[in-house]
Amino acid sequence: MNRFALTRGLGAAAPTGSRRGRVRSVIGLAAAGAVLFTMSGCASSGGSGGGADSLTVGFAQVGAESAWRTANTKDIQESFKTADIPLKFSDAQGKQENQIKAIRSYIQQKVDVIAFSPVVESGWDTVLNEAKDADIPVVLTDRSVDSSDDSLYKSFLGSDFVAEGEKAGEWAKTEFADATAVNVVELQGTTGAAPANDRAKGFRTAIEGDSKFKIIASQTGDFTRAGGKQVMEAFLKSNPKIDLLYAHNDDMGLGAIEAIEAAGLKPGVDIKIVTVDAVHDGMQALADGKINFIVECSPLLGGQLVDIVKKVAAGETVDKRIVTEETTFTQDQAKAALPDRKY
């Protein structure tokens, strides 16, 4: 809930000395296990398969840290199954070293294409060069890498966070077309995270020319419900008139809804709400009229990934940057879409 840099520092400083050795060896063991596991997987598939023109893809996922990620994993696995392309899948559990090991094992197994969502932005040059030397094309999904050499990967498929912020801002402009003054409060994502920075930037770009929009308060809610609720409670008390809430994800918006209701106001009516993500609970709130508009940030990029992989394997050129197909939802669209949502 509350984060104290200082205390975090204190807490971390004490155990590290005695802990690092242990942690390292545990990671080493786990990684060794992962390699063994993937190797045995390779042996069995090599024995049974072996079609001449068959395509094999290795995918290194970040982990399973959220519902969004779980949906992402499921969609990728299902899309490859439907396309009848063997997929080797590994879960890095949020650790870069696991992901590098997984990519190396894919290189050894001579898969045709490697795809992965980088855990962090930096530190990929060595392993991506190994893939390049082995002549295996790499596709990035969802997150990008920070490298001066962009020949290291063929394409980056993922959401455009700036565009998401812009869509939210554009909606606000049409929604408040007749208003004379609009007081906006913003619940930002985790400070410094790319989606938080970009969604803030896009929204500001969209409302920039319109002087009636005024962002009167902006604070981080850490992408969590509890954070969104606490920050919104304070916003409501220090700002007598709020017209619009822009939350960088559904969860913070859901927390804020509780705070607004506790203050005796009607979310979606007294204070309009626009959020980004479109996870199930958010869509439910949208259908219930408590949120006014959601910009989708879709984890369902499996289908597009299959297309890119096929093209890349066939030697065709693909765009360096491909934006995930995403939409936006109004309250009526949410009611219609809700029964078929996968996540």
Binding site: F4, A226, K229, D251, E258
Partner: peptide
Amino acid sequence: VTAADANSAGLWIEM
């Protein structure tokens, strides 16, 4: 918040 979030509930509360 009528929700259990295994990732973020009580994060850093020990500190």
